[in-house]
Design a protein around this nucleic acid. Structure first.
Length: 277
DNA sequence: ACCCAGGATTCTC
DNA sequence: GAGAATCATGGG
């Protein structure tokens, strides 16, 4: 078991787990609970501190520091943040961008296309219970996200039963490629190459590629543009254009940590910008 | 019945 | 290349 005691100002689970980067965490009885890297991760706020408890196979504390992105100085990332970004950051202190597993991120965000977050979460959970490796903590059973080979061994029918819909064949084909090692080189690519390469996976376009690059491969300049991002850029920055134009606007404005700015803005938009505006 | 959801793919011009 | 139609599925 690994434990962390952190200041809520540097890691706030209420922001980390609701800002849309992961679909596997739920709050139960005041405790955030989910599975990451085949371990149970629980986070509980206690005043101004947060206790993190990680149970399961024993992984090095350094691995978890990396997963939690604890060693990045968030307060120093945007020294000249504009008023919009500053407001978004001030509204979510302790938000951090996790470093998640590539296969889980790839498949989850293929599922996210033209879908809504509650339904994505439900399908991901069903997927884990169907094909993931179970492990038990304190007598309760949890499921790791299925590895690529397990996913590739599923049928289109079973994936549709779990709620994947028309994305089922994309998931199978992309899982097959991942099982063959096709994600292995992405970590060493620069952002531009990674984005281009990830889009060769079935079901992966510009937005999903940016999510995978950002959330699984540490490409912090990758800036996913979705309906929320177009809305916030239009309403709060007065910039309107194609997703590609919005991405260029964001990269120019936010620089090498644009993806982290994106998470603050996305989280802010979902909480404070009325839908349909 | 209609629209939307963290879009991607395919068809068409 | 840019723009429209199509793609399951559940909830408003």
């Amino acid at each position: 078991m690994t434990e962390f005691v952190l200041r809520k100002a540097e890691f706030n689970p209420d922001h980390v787990f609701t800002c849309g980067q992961t679909f596997r965490f739920q709050k139960e009885n005041g405790i955030w609970c989910g599975v990451a890297r085949g371990n149970l991760l629980e986070a509980e706020a206690d005043g101004s501190i947060v206790r993190l408890r990680i149970s399961g196979q024993e992984l090095a504390a350094e691995t978890w520091r990396q997963y939690l992105d604890l060693d990045r100085p968030y307060a120093e990332l945007f020294p000249e943040a504009d008023p919009v970004l500053r407001r978004a950051m001030q509204s979510a202190p302790g938000l951090r961008v996790l470093n998640q597993e590539p296969v889980e991120t790839l498949i989850s965000f293929i599922l996210s296309a033209n879908n809504n977050i509650p339904r994505i979460s439900g399908t991901v959970k069903a997927l884990c219970e169907e094909a993931g490796t179970p492990f038990s903590v304190g007598g309760e059973v949890f499921y790791a996200f299925p590895d690529a080979a397990a996913l590739a061994g599923m049928t289109e029918t079973s994936l549709r039963t779990l709620g994947a819909g028309y994305r089922a064949p994309y998931i199978l084909a992309s899982a097959e490629r991942a099982a063959g090692g096709d994600l292995d080189g992405v970590a060493d690519m620069d952002t531009e190459d990674a984005l281009k390469y990830l889009q060769t996976f079935p079901g992966v376009g510009p937005k999903v590629a940016a999510c995978v690059a950002l959330f699984a491969f540490g490409k912090r300049e990758a800036f996913p543009v979705d309906t929320w991002m177009r809305r916030i850029v239009r309403n709060l920055y007065g910039f309107e254009g194609s997703p590609q134009a919005v991405q260029a606007f964001a990269e120019e404005r936010f620089g090498s940590s644009a993806g982290i700015a994106q998470q603050y803005l996305f989280h802010y938009a979902r909480r404070y910008l009325p839908a349909g505006s």
